[in-house]
Every structure is written in C-alpha cells, then in structure tokens.
Computed example of a mutant assay.
Amino acid sequence: MMRTVGTTSRGVRCPVIREGDDLVKIVTDAILACGEEQHIEFQDKDIVAVTEAVVARSQGNYASVDAIAADCAAKFGTDTIGLTFPILSRNRIAICLKGIARAFKKAYILMSYPSDEVGNHLFDEDLLDEKGVNPWSDVLSEEKYRQLFGYVKHPFTGVDYVEYYGELFRSQGCEVEFVFANDVRAILPYTKNVLCCDIHSRFRSKRRLEAAGAEKVLLLSDILTAPVSGSGCNEKFGLLGSNKATEESVKLFPRDCETFVARLAASLREATGKQIEAMVYGDGAFKDPVGKIWELADPVVSPAYTLGLEGQPNELKLKYLADNDFADLSGEALTAAIKESITHKDADLKGQMASQGTTPRRLTDLIGSLCDLTSGSGDKGTPIILIQGYFDNFAKEEK
C-alpha cells in the first residue's frame, strides 16, 4: 500500500518567552509534549525550527531609541544626514528612524518609488505611465511628488508613509526633506554623509555612493553592532531585522544563534534518540501576489541552522518523467518506473531536463518560508515548528 503522507509542518505551542528563560529546555519540552499528545514517532532528519523573535526575547536583545540616537551621533559626528531607501513599515523601521531623527538636526530622506525594496507601494505603479514619469531617471522633490501622485494611503495600513515619516522626524526636532529617486546617488547633492537603510541591496548602495564621492557611508547593519549604555546589539546585522517593541525601544535580531541551534539539536537528540535538525527562522522569502509585498524584511531567512540543512534540493520532476521518459506506461508500471528513477538519480541533477521546474533555492530559505507560513505573525502562539518528512520522496515507503 502506498504511503499517503509526505511532508508535515506543525506549529507547536509553548509558554510565552521572557528574558532569561531557558529556551533550549522550553523548546525540547514542548516538542516532547507535542509528540505525546499527537502520537508522533520522531525520525532522523526531522526539523525543529524556532522563530527568531523568541530567541531574541530570551536573550533580552533590546535597545532603546536613545541608544540608537547615541550610536548614530557618535559614528557620524555631524548634524546633517542622508537616509536612503527606508522601507515602508511602522513595525520594522519607524522606531529605528525615531532614534536616527533624535541624533540629527537635518535629514534628507531618499525614497524609492513607486515601492520600497520589499514591495510596499507608495502608489500604484500604473500611475508612472499615466504621469509620464521614468522611475529610473527622474528625481522628484516632495512638492513635485505631491503634484504628480497626491496623498496616497497604503491599502493595507491606511498610512501615507511620506507624511508619517515626515511627522516622525519633526516630532524629534529634526528638519526633514524628502527626495524621490531610484538611484542611490541622488542623495549626494544634498549631503555626503549617508546612512543606507536598504536591506538586501545595502552593499551595492554603499559601493556606489563611495565611488561617487560620499564622505561617510554606513549601513543599518553598522548601527548597534556593540552595546550602547547597556543596550542589546547584533554584531553582524546591527539594526537590520529589528522590530518595534514599544514606542521607545526595538527588539533586535538575535545574537549567537549558532550556539543556540547546536545546543537545541544536542538536547533533542538526547531526548528522542534521533538526529533532529534545528534552525532559527525569521521572515519567509515569498511574495504576496495581491499586495505585491515580498515578505523578506529580515536580512536573512535563517540566521543559523545545523549542518544537515545545508544545500539545495536535488529533485526530479515527476510530471516530466510521466510525460516524457515513461509516457507509454500507466498504473503500477508507471509508479514503479518513477520510483526506480528517483532511487537511482544522480547526486547532482543541475542542468538535466528531468529536474527543470524544481526549486533551485537553498533548503534553509525554503524551510524557513514554510515555518513562517505555518507559525504566522499574529496570535497563533506557535513559535516552534516541527517538520517531518521534508527529505522524503515518492520512492520512500517506510517511515
């Protein structure tokens, strides 16, 4: 009889995590309780993933707006700053911008248009054609931007982000001027001191600015790389990956995740007798086709994972085999032929027609996206994900 279940992904509940909690023990206990409740038989290559939010919370990795301001002031040593390409998010960057505003007297903010790098739109991109605007070359002042596009509120949040960010900066005593362009170098006529606020394009932005004559260029990943007055920090990602905690603080991306996943994997192995892989996950890497938002506002999908999760899928496309190699077969003969092909497939299928259409992405990005979709971002209360059968295939019959 054919095995009927392939990959399963379960959200696992646990107590609300606080600073100082033994997260390894909490996760291990939760997984064991889930196994008992659901009559789960654990297997080698099962995966236990923990959202970065609770890892950071257990570490107490928080920072105040004042700490952000102090670090910006110390690292720039000027009263005027240019900010390039901040994403449109009250949760992700608004509190960071509040701290940045507190550090300076004047800020020039370069906004990409019609959307930010993760797909949040200032306005409908079809308006570019209607208004005759070339987003690759046209640099717009705030006045020109308003003349062309007016006051547009985001369809999901009901926020006009230009207005919102402007009020935020002015509330901190910082004069603000907006510029709209998609070439990061458009900030340089206004100031030579720049803080790049983009996420995935940040290194290219810095290189282009420095080549064009910028005097000092820092990235969000350069801010709070060390504690300021006892604050949290992140040595690798700085402010990237942070979320709003309160009106005066942010939760930073977790630190030392490699140690955490190693300890968790060892704890799970001791508790179950199985080689269970472990990872920390953040945002998934997928795009909403309606809102056009690319979910990945974290710098990476997974900041740490065990070695068994390295690599990319190496899979055959079943429909290709059925429609081409075994087009003359059906029923049990077709099933047997496909299973035989899977069992004896090459260790590296790259470039082969039989693998076209499979997903050429890193396993950790795929698995992290599955985890993010499973756990959600609201009140499901499942910061732990148990995945089973991810590395199985159609040819595997036994558990």
Rank of each mutant, 00 (worst) to 15 (best):
K98V: 03
L321P: 06
Y164H: 14
D198M: 03
C96A: 14
L209F: 06
L268M: 12
G132K: 04
L127Q: 15
G230D: 10
T80Q: 13
K105D: 15
G230Q: 09
N61C: 00
E37W: 04
L209T: 09
P303F: 04
T272A: 08
L188F: 07
D198V: 01
L195A: 09
T80I: 12
T80S: 07
Y164D: 15
K206V: 10
P254Y: 12
I95L: 06
L296H: 04
A285K: 11
A226I: 05
D365I: 01
D21Q: 01
R90L: 13
G213R: 08
F391I: 05
K75Y: 01
A30K: 02
Q388I: 02
L140S: 07
E52W: 09
G119M: 09
L349S: 08
V159S: 07
G35N: 10
D22I: 04
F394P: 00
D160Y: 07
K396C: 06
K216D: 01
E36I: 12
D44T: 11
N134W: 02
H154I: 02
A67H: 04
A226V: 11
Q38M: 14
V133A: 11
T80Y: 01
L83A: 03
T7W: 00
G376K: 04
H39Q: 15
V280I: 13
D298E: 11
K339Y: 00
Y145C: 08
A211K: 14
F42Q: 06
D126K: 15
D79R: 13
R18H: 14
P135H: 07
T51S: 14
R170Q: 15
D116A: 10
G357P: 10
L363F: 11
G119I: 04
R207D: 14
A73R: 14
A107Q: 04
S89V: 02
F260H: 11
K153V: 11
Y113K: 09
Y164R: 05
D46V: 06
D298A: 13
G232Y: 01
I93Y: 02
E163C: 05
K25R: 15
R90K: 13
G284H: 01
R185E: 12
D126P: 00
K144D: 15
K153M: 09
C72Q: 03
N134I: 05
Y62W: 01
R102D: 14
L321T: 08
C14Q: 12
T358W: 00
